[in-house]
Design a binder for these strands. Structure first.
Lengths: 336, 336
DNA sequence: AGGGTAACTTTAAACGATTTATTTGAAGTA
DNA sequence: TACTTCAAATAAATCGTTTAAAGTTACCCT
């Protein structure tokens, strides 16, 4: 039960010194004799005193909080990014306030406002969806902000760092590879609206058109990051367009559903149909067949994001735009 | 950039009223005339005033924070439990402070102490590993605490709620089913030390012994929740003990590795070897063959955990010990 | 007109720390 | 002795809000 907690005043009284002397001891400052210091420390230990962080944060002007905003905890980046951020936050003795902003960005404003109320020192936001200029205004309230996967990086204020995965380049490279292997009829299972989702589709379209090919609109389906969607979508596509020879997926989870659908339909992978995913997950090298995927260094993104925030807070020079190169991992689901 | 923020004093000055009147307006209290109220609200809107939550929390004795502690963000329960907790926290206008305590529980004390410093109103802790009596002492600092998956529930203080999955019952049922299908030589891929890990193994041992069978110690390997471990462990086991006919896994991720290993070794599932996992993941119905698994209602656990905390905070009557029944989902990886 | 009451407002004191002066006392210097 | 210097400690103000108590009107009633 929340007991009546010991305060700095209690300690000061018992030690027969002023609160300020106690405060000095707590914060390891000078101007306290060794004798007094030890005596106060002994009392603190004995009484089990722990300074109230809320009061402390009010007096400091630092809150020691970092806001971490995801559209949804279900997105592919979530676990690894949070691991990276936690790691760096711990090193800096910061704490993480976690928020969901909704898959359609509906709660973004509300969430940022709440974080502002808590005077978080910095914000890391993954995949914001609101208009960039409105976002820029909201972000003005924070000393440091880092956005992951966001378009229009140029129009953002100076104190905002952006980290983008170069989704376009990776998908273009993968598409080109498959075209050179003789693939002609591409389909794309797209994810919920997001910046990388748009970029990747554009990469496919552009690359195909360089070869005089095209990605038909009815070969593109949009859905969630689930094997269920991948399964159903693949069945639908292959029923309607049996000559499809390549299915690119926004996410490995979808791709796993696609693999299963092909297995159920008796379509050979990769001979008849090539399949590739993205956002490597631990399972993609354990599927049957193993899955070709675009690997995004998610943990590193979390690390870099958090570091950029702390660099801002400490007025260190920081890059404003950070681009991360994904890597294509070729496995059995695409032709050699 | 952190600009100089508008305070309640600024609003009071501009409205030519006292801070307290403004406070009343903010908190929707009585004793303010409609005229004054509207006027103040207008000023608040115009100046973009937002009350400082830190100062607020200091004045209230509620922090509006919930601490959420996991051993690691990589554990099977993580994403769904957090979703559940977030959901309920949002409804109550609470905020989540997320903490990792380490897979060996090394940081548990440190983390709980930090949460105490922040005066979180309640704590939800998943899979604590420290000795129960030490834990009980630490939890005394909180008004409400809920533990998920913890042994020795009886020795915990009254204000602590525990939520346990009845891992023992489910695993016993599954084992019995497989024995009745004629399986005799069981192996078990165990997870990192945790309460459910211990309980499930015991369930296998006990059930087998009822049938005069036993789980040989060298048929039990321990490792992390990864397909890699499942893969390697399965290969090791099947090489050393080719007559194993059942591999039970602590987690679906391991089981997926086991499936792959059997495929690589040319062992037929389920005819030669039955495989089952636990903690249903989205993929387990998309593996080839599909995976039999013990399904734990993780999202509901998050919901229930958060609700129990709020019930405590609001002095509503609450159950002290909540037991959750997992469900066995039979699929292709075990005999019909 | 006096008293009572309701409707508002204001003053002042928390909340629990830090920060900014200021004071005290002892030691050093000329 | 008188003056400066420095360390050690204290007092008071501050952070931005709420809460409790006191104060002011205005209105109604007899």
């Amino acid at each position: 039960m929340a007991k009546n907690r010991v305060t700095i005043t209690d300690i000061a009284q018992e030690a027969k010194v002023s609160k300020q002397t106690v405060s000095r001891v707590i914060n390891n400052k000078d101007d306290v004799s060794d004798e007094t210091r030890e005596q106060i420390q002994a009392i603190i230990r004995r009484r089990g005193y722990r300074p109230n962080s809320i009061a402390r944060n009010l007096a400091f002007r630092r809150s020691v909080y970092l806001g971490l905003v995801f559209p949804n905890v279900d997105i592919p980046l979530f676990v690894d990014v949070i691991r990276g951020v936690e790691h760096v936050a711990n090193q800096n003795e910061y704490h993480i306030l976690l928020k969901e902003a909704g898959n359609e960005g509906t709660k973004e404003e509300q969430v940022l406002t709440a974080l502002e109320d808590f005077r978080v020192d910095g914000v890391i936001m993954v995949g914001p969806l609101m208009p960039t200029n409105a976002l820029a205004t909201l972000l003005n309230s924070f000393e440091a902000a880092t956005l992951i996967n966001v378009p229009d990086v140029d129009t953002l204020p100076d104190h905002v760092t952006t980290i983008n995965v170069d989704s376009y380049a990776a998908m273009a490279q993968l598409t080109e590879y498959l075209v050179q292997k003789g693939r002609r009829r591409f389909a794309y299972l797209n994810g919920p609206v997001s910046f990388p989702a748009v970029a990747r589709k554009q990469a496919i379209v552009d690359t195909l058109s360089q070869y005089g090919l095209q990605l038909a609109e009815d070969h593109v389906l949009r859905g969630h990051y689930t094997p269920e969607f991948g399964y159903e979508a693949t069945k639908t596509l292959l029923t309607r367009f049996p000559d499809i020879d390549t299915i690119l997926c926004f996410d490995d989870r979808m791709a796993i559903g696609a693999l299963k659908a092909c297995a159920d339909l008796g379509r050979k992978i990769p001979d008849e149909i090539a399949i590739a995913g993205a956002h490597e997950i631990p399972f993609s090298s354990f599927t049957i067949p193993t899955l070709t995927t675009i690997s995004v260094p998610r943990f590193e993104m979390g690390i870099v994001a958090a570091e950029s925030v702390f660099d801002r807070l400490n007025n260190k020079p920081t890059e404003k735009i950070i681009s991360i190169k994904p890597e294509i991992i070729f496995r059995e689901s695409t032709p050699l």
